[in-house]
Nucleic acid binder design. Structure first.
Lengths: 341, 341
DNA sequence: AAAATCACCGAAAGCGGTTTCGTCGAACAC
DNA sequence: GTGTTCGACGAAACCGCTTTCGGTGATTTT
């Protein structure tokens, strides 16, 4: 039988209310009793029950974490996990803990995210995804529960979102390619269901035209997802359809890595025959040969800002605010200058 | 005002007890009322409160996740995150959700893991770590709360652990090196605080001797941690102290990657000049040049088994059981045969 | 027909906190 | 000396759900 608030009250010779007030910093408690009770708490190692507190206050100090989308996004996703890592740090700093909803089919509340949020009484939640999502997410988005989306535009009154400037990053890539002398530019993205990829593709095409170049649709391939295998297949399709462009931008580093593997098999050198730029700047970029140039998404900042935004949504009636984060071009070896040959 | 059990009861014209019994599959409810109540639940989108349930039953269906140790182990750790991923899947399948304790200094219960477990009433918890840990972990280990350790030997009556066979993996490495014709073997590990590394080092030395070779202490370097930078520094130290061995086993893939970077800078080729084998088989192994041979830890199995063991600890009075998982040598390019030259 | 059994349901006491509101004695004003 | 304010505390209702135990009417037993 663990020690609870009643035990403390009895030991201190005060009422339960008094103990509770002390824990919640009420002012109508004398300094004497306060210190006495606190002392007893310390001695007994008393820990208040979060369930009881949540039940009484409707606040759980818990943040729900949702990996949304039909794709298999989970802990192993190199981009999102880094964002989450930073998010967790900042959220912990603000006094919250993270609750990861399982989404196994066997689960009673499977798929119904709003229900799960209510079930656990989370104070807010973060939704990470790389694609358009199931209706159950919209339901949550438009509910009263504060939500912050990463790479997904939440529109609810108590929601906000944060993402990199996907349009601008494409411009930066095209600009770089152009300045290096490349004129034939290709793109590897993911399914049409992905807003992210769509925006990048749009930005890429617009940029190409703004530099007075032509868009060749054969050099635009959208695979099924953002993983390596899709990048591998994309290159094969590209080669089958036409000759290769001089440079290609892949909408994720994993796509780029898969692309490089395919190019290697076709005896094409990176960057001499085809220059490659990836996107995200995951750890693995440094370990590939050639090292992968990429658009760095400031994952640390995204996670931290997501936490701050969510905190505001929870604790103030602040207008929902969305932020786009400036991406950065990281030049390594895979996009080397054409002129150097 | 959200719908609760009382609302349902009123709407269905039954008592609160009846509704509760229906949710908990009591048998003394007629089929008629059962279906009627269930129907109303569905219509109203009723979701029971986990806090209330936890308060009443002392079971939360929550599993606490603890990254222990002074090292900065977190979501970005390539080995543990994969284990956790598999753990989460299996735990979700069993009906549990995961609660990640923040361990920021600002947090009220910072550092006191047992307190946090009690605070949230977790049914059990998983402790992942790569090293010996703070006393607060022991406290939790020996408490009444079921715990499962990954890479840490928990000894409490309600605890268990799971890890790869760290002794045997070293034997496999030495055996491979020996069969390839290497006779001068080195090792890169982590601080003396790490049981894991100690076991691997011991196994490595024992294996070396069992093959009739000599142990050269200059070729055994223990860095500060398991990260890349330590591997890099280890090689530099090794080179400074003596000439290089023909082959080295690094106690983590990141150490190995760092080692390869250092070797490259010293104009030493892998594997022609120095053969390397890493440990863990993280994603990045495939992307390095040369691709990194490694000891694969079956992360999927470890995570799944951890879940099963924990489930048993929670739901039965089963004897605490510990399991070691068989490691597997994965041969890529970095340990290539010496004989082939 | 009386007794025993059975199916079905509800009252009520928790679980461990929070919060409102009232009380009571001491200090203050007049 | 009476009325008022104020500081310090407690009683009690409540949060939403579980679970025991008892009750009631219908059915079965003998």
């Amino acid at each position: 039988m663990s020690v609870n608030i009643k035990t403390i009250a009895k030991m201190a010779g005060v009422s339960v209310s008094t103990v509770s007030k002390i824990m919640n910093n009420y002012s109508d408690i004398s300094e004497d009793t306060r210190t006495k009770v606190l002392e007893i708490m310390k001695q007994t190692g008393y820990v208040p029950s979060n369930s009881a507190k949540t039940l009484a206050t409707k606040k759980s100090n818990l943040i729900g974490v949702i990996f949304a989308g039909k794709l298999n996004i989970d802990f192993t996703h190199p981009f999102f996990i880094e964002v989450l890592n930073s998010f967790k740090k900042q959220m912990g700093f603000l006094g919250y803990d993270l609750l990861f909803f399982s989404n196994e089919k066997s689960h009673a509340l499977d798929g119904d995210y709003l229900a799960r949020c209510r079930h656990f009484n989370v104070d807010g939640c973060i939704i990470v995804t790389g694609q358009q999502v199931e209706p159950s997410i919209s339901e949550l988005d438009y509910s009263e529960i504060p939500c912050i989306g990463v790479d997904i535009e939440l529109k609810g009154r108590s929601s906000g979102y944060i993402m990199s400037d996907n349009y601008k990053m494409s411009y930066k890539v095209v600009e770089h390619f152009y300045l290096q002398g490349y004129r034939e530019l290709g793109y590897i993205g993911s399914t049409l269901e992905s807003d992210i990829s769509n925006t990048r593709e749009k930005g890429y095409k617009d940029a190409i035209e703004s530099f007075g170049l032509a868009v060749n649709e054969n050099w635009f391939i959208n695979g099924d997802n953002f993983f390596e295998e899709s990048g591998y297949e994309a290159i094969n399709k590209m080669i089958a359809a036409d000759r290769m462009p001089q440079a290609v931008f892949a909408a994720s580093d994993l796509l780029a890595i898969g692309a490089m593997r395919a190019l290697k098999e076709h005896q094409l050198r990176v960057p001499q025959d085809v220059a490659i730029i990836g996107c995200d700047d995951i750890e693995a970029c440094k370990y590939t040969t050639p090292a992968l140039s990429t658009i760095r998404q400031n994952k640390d900042k995204i996670g931290r800002l997501a936490a701050s935004l969510l905190f505001d949504l929870i604790n103030t009636q602040s207008e929902t605010s969305n932020v786009v984060v400036e991406p950065e071009l990281v030049i390594r070896e895979s996009c080397g200058s054409r002129l150097k040959e």
